[in-house]
């Protein structure tokens, strides 16, 4: 599911039957242009750019780790971590003050 989820987010909904496996096992496979497919620009992690002209070509590259640059990892986990750290420090501070002043 996860792969399809990413592929369809970048390449659009899969229309028709394609077998990615058969393509990946064939090093001489040549992708045919799909005139109905709107060209998608993909980027590798090294910054290389490629234009893909069919859904299956796009899916093949996305499977290989290419992205359209639009799916960026959100910072939510960082904010979550900062929030937890802040909460913990506040609680510890509160506890420390409570021990020092209230319980005395």
């Amino acid at each position: 599911m996860k792969t399809i989820f990413n592929v369809e987010k970048i390449c659009g909904i899969k229309i028709g039957e394609y077998s990615l496996e058969s393509i990946q096992n064939n090093p001489n496979f040549i992708f045919e242009n799909d005139p109905n497919y709107e060209t998608v620009v993909l980027y590798s992690s090294e910054g290389t750019v490629i234009n893909v002209n069919s859904w299956i070509e796009c899916a093949n590259y996305v499977e290989g780790g290419w992205t359209n640059g639009l799916i960026t990892s959100s910072n939510s986990e960082m904010y979550y971590f900062l929030f937890l750290t802040g909460l913990l420090l506040s609680l510890l501070g509160y506890k420390f003050l409570q021990k020092k002043y209230v319980e005395k």
């Binding site: 986990e77 960082m78 979550y80 971590f81 937890l84 913990l88 609680l91």
Partner: peptide, 18 residues
């Protein structure tokens, strides 16, 4: 330093323990 999932995970369990 940017593995916030890991740090968040540690912090979550620390808070649960608290």
């Amino acid at each position: 330093s940017d593995n916030y999932l890991l740090f968040g995970y540690f912090m979550t369990f620390f808070l649960i323990c608290y």
